[in-house]
Design a protein around this nucleic acid. Structure first.
Lengths: 194, 194
DNA sequence: ATTTTTTCTTGATATAGATCAAGAGGACCA
DNA sequence: TGGTCCTCTTGATCTATATCAAGAAAAAAT
């Protein structure tokens, strides 16, 4: 067992609650990978052949439409990142994934990922739970758009992700919350003053 | 094999591409169930112990917040319906599910559903694919809220769900698209005139 | 250090969409 | 057959948020 991978293992363990043997088998398929600020881990339209765990750094998931650039999410240390639906269904990727900082990742190829399904009996169940969590997460977001104002979405996100506000261009956070940078700036000002 | 369940089987088959034996095993665990207009299949805060396939009828998924009622979705013939994250994680349900019409369902209990995982080797993989599709569906919806106006969301939804507009109170569609009934009505008027 | 580029703020204005209020049309009932 | 309720529409107004434009501040580059 590679000691330097403890963090990944800890995460997988806490997330999935797998046995030590399975844990080792899973973690061993992840390879360390680094990338530089500005690098693309994925571009819209390409195959999404990797799933990565973020050891350090920040990555932005976004897409360009005719009119504007839409940031879907910013993912940080301790989270997995991929274009899930492209990864699962082999569709062309919808999202760009670009490093906002230099990064350290643990990465598994789709091929190796799928082989885990053959070696580890519980694998598909773990996968299912992982995807179900992603689903629950999106459901929360949909709800926030159906029921909350821009200001309420700002407050909620701020409470849950304070640190991100010092680490990335705020315009990206504005976009992922579904508002313009100007509106974001005004809400932020009001929020700081009070 | 119960002939009256062909529709469910057809659906499972097309959705999951399972073998005839597995298909029969899966379908046999679903029980026919009827319910009347206005009945609740699930209420917010309760356990979600069932997954249902809609043979006929319409069901509304919604929740009450302090200020207002938020319709998440309206589900119709040929679709599965449950509070997915409550069903998977045994959380208290977020959503109410209420029949908008008399309905015919095929229903499986959570207990039987989970037993399928023991009997059918591919089950967890099928489950995973099902949940991943639900994820992809929500991802589309998030994207529509991040990138589109109320009018654009209306148009898109109308193209994809024309028939629903004759079948349910329009205020519910308005809510699931994230706009008021008044705005919905005005957009609709404009859309019909042109 | 100075320049260049990017990001953020601020003001002025415009617009999409919400809210409030009232009425019209249907459906369901008794 | 006339209510009662529910749903939808319409107008008037209001408000949240977008847009446009410019400058300030911060970060990156040279």
């Amino acid at each position: 067992m590679n000691l330097s991978m403890t963090e990944l293992e800890t995460y997988i363990q806490s997330y999935f609650g797998v046995s030590p043997e399975d844990l080792a088998a899973i973690a061993s398929q992840f390879k360390e990978k680094q990338c530089k600020k500005g690098d693309f881990l994925l571009k819209t339209g390409n195959h999404c052949d990797e799933l990565s765990f973020i050891q350090s750094g920040l990555i932005r998931i976004y897409v360009n439409t005719q009119e504007k650039e839409v940031t879907q999410w910013i993912s940080s240390k301790g989270y997995f990142v991929t274009d899930l639906s492209a990864f699962v269904f082999d569709n062309p990727a919808r999202w760009n994934m670009q490093a906002l900082t230099d990064m350290k990742l643990y990465t598994i190829s789709k091929k190796d990922y799928r082989l885990l399904g053959k070696d580890i009996p519980k694998w598909h169940e773990l996968e299912k739970l992982f995807i179900a969590r992603c689903f629950a997460f999106l459901e929360e977001r949909i709800f926030s758009h159906l029921s909350m104002s821009a200001e309420e979405r700002y407050q909620l996100f701020f409470e849950q992700n304070k640190s991100l506000f010092n680490e990335v261009p705020l315009q990206y956070i504005a976009s992922m919350l579904g508002m313009t940078p100007e509106t974001f700036s005004r809400i932020r000002k009001k929020s700081i003053q009070s």
